[in-house]
Design a protein around this nucleic acid. Sequence first.
DNA 1: CCACCCCTAAACATAT
DNA 2: TATATGTTTAGGGGTG
Length: 944
Amino acid sequence: MWPTRFENEEPDSELNLGDNSYQQLRQFPTGSDASSVGRSGRKSSESVDNEAENVTTESSGQSRLNINLNNNSKRRSNSPASASTNNKALRLSEEYPTETFFKENLTALNGKGAPELNALELLQRQAMQLAYLHQQHQAAASLKSAPSLSPVEDANRRAKHSLTAAFAAGVLPGNASALSNQMQQLLSQQVLSPQQLQAIMQQQAMSAHQAQQIQDFYRQHQKHIQMQLAASKQQKEAANPGKTDDSSESRFGAKLSKDQQQQMQQNFALQQLMHLQQLQQQQQATAAAALQQQGLAAAMALAQGRPMPPGSDVSPADLQQLLMKQVAESSSTMRKDAPPQTNLNSSRKMSSPSNMTSPGRVRIDSHSRESSSGDARESTRRISNNPSSRESSPELGLPAALQPLFSRGCCRWPSCDKECNDTAAFHRHLNESHRLDDKSTAQCRVQMQVVGSLDKQLTMEREVLNAMMSYLRMDGKDGKANADPPNLGTSNGKAEQFSNSITSNGPTAANFSGITLPFGSQSGPNLNNRAPNNLSLPSSPISGPQIGGFPPALFSTTSLPSSPPLFSSQLSSSSGSREGMLQGKRRHSAAVPISADLTQNQEFYRTADVRPPFTYASLIRQAIIETPDCQMTLNEIYNWFQKKFAYFRRNAPTWKNAVRHNLSLHKCFVRVENVKGAVWTVDESEYQKRRPQKFSGSPAIRGRVDVGSSQSFYGAPMSLASMQMAFGENPFSQAQLASQAQAMLGTNPLQNYGSFLPAGFGGITHSLSSDATVGMDITEAANNLSALANARRHSISPTSSNHSIKEESRERFLSSQSSNKTSVKLEEIEESNESEQRNGSSPHLSNDVGPKIYSSSKDGEAMNGNSESEKEFCSPSRSRDDDMEERGSRNSMDTYSAEDSDKPLNLHHNLSHKVNGEGSSLLRQGIMSARGSFAMLHDHSVAE
DNA sequence: CCACCCCTAAACATAT
DNA sequence: TATATGTTTAGGGGTG
């Protein structure tokens, strides 16, 4: 175990190279029965997980020199042949041009250049983050406000953030680039002019101003009331000192008066709320009218299964008509009485056995629940698959303001959790345990701090979002010059409108009400009212009467997994188990702009026990490239995981094993040894190579996630299951958004472009969607990206410039193979191969020639190599060792059969294909053996 | 049913 | 010897 650098420690620039006793000189214990040695079978060394981080500081930081490297298998090494055949190129880290290392974070905002970046996805994430923060904030605020006489503040806060919330809750699903494109297309058709947007924004601003005034007013009023209460309390205490009350439950003299106080407070709170609601409804009505007028609800039409074919030219008139109809329908539905808040609580309740609302998510307006349309209830119920209705919740009898304090039959007062059978019991409990005393006030103060901090964070995140939008707006303007493919709906003005509507607090909700539906209520205005609590995007993507534009039928069959922003309960209980994995099953891999996502949502991931929607490989890579020197020890990677993700603070044995597994498995991770140990680096080219094919996870998620990736997304129709998966997977899964967009729009405007992109630039297509969204000509974008990719490959990227000789050789070898210029003779290979196999009596063949090889019969390296080679040969465009999928399948049983195990290697078969990769290790070894040295491959290399 | 993807678990090997 | 680190295999569940 190496002393590891503390994660937060600034790496030392000093490195003592020490001596030259390179690790690679270690001799692998020869002897065919190496496996018989040390079979202690240590079961999971992880069990002694070193949670206690080595905080030891170490001097091998930044310029850790990774000398070495001729190691073949990441650790074992040593034969010349093996050294030369190493799949994982080793390199001298001092040559690593870290400054040029591809940093997604930086390139993110440069959009065009970052294959992995999709600006809109970033925005989605950002918005989701906001929503999350907002929700946290709400939860905290409601806890705080209910008992502390400040429901007004709470409500005001809700109003204050409702726009953000609305945006987050609603825009997100529609924010996938596809939908965005459609939106922009709509906008471009003058459905909503910038002036109109401006008007809406102003209206919203006024509303906000009004809310502020109301808040001030109520603050004063509240203060006044409090003073009165205090005076009255003093009076009573003076009048009846020490006298017990006749209340059966009360044990304290002042009990009754306190009850009265609370009652008064509650009443007052209710009054305030009602007033606020009225005001908000007014605002909503105004905004709704404006919306109708503006016809922004076009998105509704889109969302409700009337996709506009990318190529079709819908006339503004038609669109307008459609919109008006849509708006009329929706408004009639939602305005029956109280806005259909179809709370997400229902669906979210799934996670709570008692079907009670979870803390912090209880709506202020309990009545609105009852008043929501039957459709909404029905659909919600169907979705949540939760037979019990909300009306059965015990807390219903509570004043709305107190509801956050009581859910699931438990008191939600911080660190209380007392169980109460009903509201009466809860009232009793409140009176007994949470009286207005020092403790309670202290707790309130703490809660206030929590809220304040969340508030601050929310503000910060909002600023970030605004900045992003500003940037995009500029970018959109820049892209103006480019020709606009008709279907991309890009360009300037539209981007600006888009960003305007987002950046401004007010209009956002209203403007996007049309497309916010999926996650919230249908009425934009309503969002101002209670949307905050609906923010929990994921959990109820489909709560509205029309499920936000999705035909209810779509969701009628199956229940959606409840995925509260913190679906920690699920994950925590199941993580580590297979079930746990199922919850968050599919991961986005490289397809998602992970760095941007992590950057934008770092706080979220850090605090929320949510499994990040990325593959281990993506995360590991991200961890590594985030370091200044682009290298990390295993322990540092561990630390990174734990530092960045709350999720990875649990079940360390499991995920650490997975991390190691991934490091070993994927060729894109290169182990580099130095004197003090080993560090892991990322072979960016390898990593990039694998991206085109794999968007990780099932094809479904490819479609859902990799909005910009070619082929799979566009081609594959969205299935219901996929959408459900998307909804359930992760509260902030972009997959949801993409899938919703896909489902709503029916098709992706980019689909005609994606498949034409050159292989190997999967990330480019990804960016393409982004660029297209902000107004960049797609063709040009493709060109730019290709150029960038080339540049990165040949001069910028460390993976190219630092390509180890071995790696370059490998590439040349590949090309030479593909051009049939290899001079390796089959017989030689076979011979070599056979001799190798003869050596192995135990599963592990001895090899002084490099990587350990497994012999036949299920010892599979032979088969592994075989299948691997086959695959490689079959798919010229993919790197052979590149991937997990290959390796995964290679390792799977279906890749080889028992019969195969009898055959040393089907070399004929392998060689009959284009040798595109290095081939299997066996094959490789055979070649190496035959040729004696990898260097020889150079001789036959063909310049590309 | 198959191929593929990603994941977890675990056995095993090796270095410290 | 114990532990950390790496490698590899096995198999499960999901998807198209």
